[in-house]
């Protein structure tokens, strides 16, 4: 959908650095065009799924629980692999703070614990 210029996607340096980080072996530079296309298809599907999950819950906003449901369906989140473990394993501190409730002074918890 749309031309590549209109919708730039994630940067080459981001995609390649993350891929190389996880590959733990040499990565040929000709991998990038393939990765770029895969990521385009990945985000197309992701956007469709998230919009559908949100619409199913009669919302117009994509929420954390929609993405969690998606990851359950993708098989990343299972009963033996809870989402919080993945968050702690993969995400940098700043994103983790947004997702995992932490008690602060005065008995405030940030962010608000998610309802189940």
């Amino acid at each position: 959908t749309g031309s590549a210029k209109k919708d730039p996607g994630l940067s080459k340096s981001y995609i390649m650095s993350v891929f190389k980080h996880f590959a733990k072996t040499k990565v040929s530079t000709d991998v990038y065009p393939v990765l770029k296309e895969i990521m385009e298809r990945y985000f197309d599907r992701l956007a469709d799924d998230l919009e559908m999950f949100a619409a199913h819950a009669k919302r117009k906003t994509i929420e954390v629980e929609d993405v969690e449901l998606l990851m359950r369906r993708q098989g990343f989140v299972t009963d033996s692999m809870p989402v919080n473990v993945l968050i702690e394993k993969y995400l940098p501190m700043e994103s983790r703070k947004l997702l995992i409730p932490v008690a602060t002074s005065g008995n405030y918890v940030i962010p608000k614990p998610r309802r189940k």
Binding site: E51, T61, E63, V64, E68, M71, S95
Partner: peptide, 16 residues
């Protein structure tokens, strides 16, 4: 469609 607070952080996790 809007993106709720922290939902993008979850998508970041999914990308990783």
């Amino acid at each position: 469609i809007r993106v709720g607070t922290a939902a993008d952080a979850m998508v970041e996790l999914n990308v990783l």
